[in-house]
Amino acid sequence: MRFGFVGSFGSVAQTVALAQEAEAHGWDGFFTWDGISVGELDTWDPWTLLGALAVSTERIRLGAMIFPLARRRPWKVARETVTVDHLSGGRLVLPVGLGAVDDGGFAGVSGETTSARGRAERLDDALAILERAWSGERFSYAGTHHTVTDLVFRPQPVQRPRIPVWAVGAWPSERSMGRAARWDGVIPQGRTGPVTPDDVRALVAWTDERRRALAAAEPERFLGDFDVVVEGVLPEGPDAAAAHARAYADAGATWWVESRWDAQRDTPETLLDRVRQGPPRL
């Protein structure tokens, strides 16, 4: 199992320093987040921040938890992803989902799609365009909401065959999980609460079966590893944290991403203290 950390609170300088500390203390990934207007929370542009993180770290995976592609132009995301992928030497991962409509970037502006169906359709269009753009070949695409004609994106990403995509999967929704199964990883979400190790065990079995069936038609698409990425807060104390993470690892999870969002408890200083403790030893 690999371990990531979300820089949920702090200034730009504090977030960059937190990522450097995460790398120095054995974490495998560092993630920012993608918001526009979330209450009064200090919020930074994720792509600008990821560019800074790419040139100030050397080893750890980088991304944002998560990118709501429904409110982004996929051709612009294609350019942003390739740039950060090259800046980082191939360390970018792209976690994606429908996004939260209470973000002012959805609910506080006109013209954005807020229905779950509309956001899902735009997400699927965006992923289809990104995959074609990352190929480096000339392409056109006609989707439900986006049509592009005769585009070429160069250079290709450092990573082949593509930048890894982790998609949020609402377990046990077949449609949502089916989208994730077509990509490179799933960030499972439970319908009534956090996913449990038993949930992970069941969704891993379901995903393995689905990917085997899909591979019969597109074998070249399903050759790589598939990540199962669990978000949460580990218990205090190294033994308790290790036992908690081990239960998910034994169930088939490949990543634990420490994601702390309690404004009453979590500050830039407490995040730094936690990062310096390092990830659990399994």
Rank of each mutant, 00 (worst) to 15 (best):
A52I: 01
L53C: 09
L53G: 07
A54V: 00
A54E: 01
V55L: 05
V55S: 05
V55G: 04
S56N: 09
S56C: 08
S56D: 09
T57K: 00
T57M: 00
T57P: 05
T57L: 00
T57S: 03
E58P: 15
R59G: 14
R59E: 07
I60E: 08
I60P: 11
I60Q: 09
I60K: 07
I60M: 08
R61V: 05
R61K: 08
R61D: 07
L62D: 10
L62E: 10
G63E: 14
G63C: 14
A64R: 02
A64D: 02
M65P: 15
I66K: 14
F67N: 12
F67A: 11
F67E: 13
F67V: 11
F67W: 15
P68W: 10
P68Y: 10
A70S: 08
A70W: 07
A70V: 06
A70I: 10
R71M: 02
R72G: 13
R72F: 08
R72K: 13
R72V: 15
R72P: 10
R72C: 12
R73K: 15
R73N: 12
P74N: 03
P74C: 03
P74R: 02
P74V: 05
W75P: 12
W75I: 11
W75K: 15
W75G: 15
K76N: 08
K76R: 08
K76Y: 08
K76E: 14
V77A: 00
A78F: 00
A78E: 01
R79P: 11
E80T: 12
E80C: 15
T81Q: 04
V82D: 02
V82A: 01
V82E: 02
V82T: 03
V82R: 02
T83G: 03
T83D: 03
T83M: 04
T83A: 03
T83C: 01
T83Y: 03
T83E: 04
V84K: 10
V84W: 10
V84L: 13
V84A: 14
V84E: 12
V84P: 14
D85Y: 02
D85R: 01
D85L: 05
H86Q: 06
H86P: 15
H86F: 10
G89Q: 04
G89T: 04
G89R: 05
G89A: 05
G90Y: 01
R91I: 04
V93T: 13
L94Y: 00
P95M: 13
P95W: 14
V96I: 06
V96Q: 05
G97R: 06
L98K: 06
L98P: 12
L98I: 06
G99D: 06
G99E: 07
A100R: 13
A100H: 13
A100E: 15
V101C: 04
V101E: 08
V101H: 07
D102R: 09
D102N: 11
D103P: 02
D103I: 00
D103K: 00
G104L: 10
G104M: 09
G104V: 12
G105L: 02
G105F: 00
F106H: 13
F106Q: 09
F106C: 14
G108S: 11
G108W: 07
G108K: 12
G108T: 08
G108N: 11
V109P: 15
V109I: 11
V109D: 14
S110G: 14
G111V: 07
G111D: 08
E112C: 15
E112W: 11
E112V: 15
E112I: 12
T113C: 09
T113H: 14
T113Y: 11
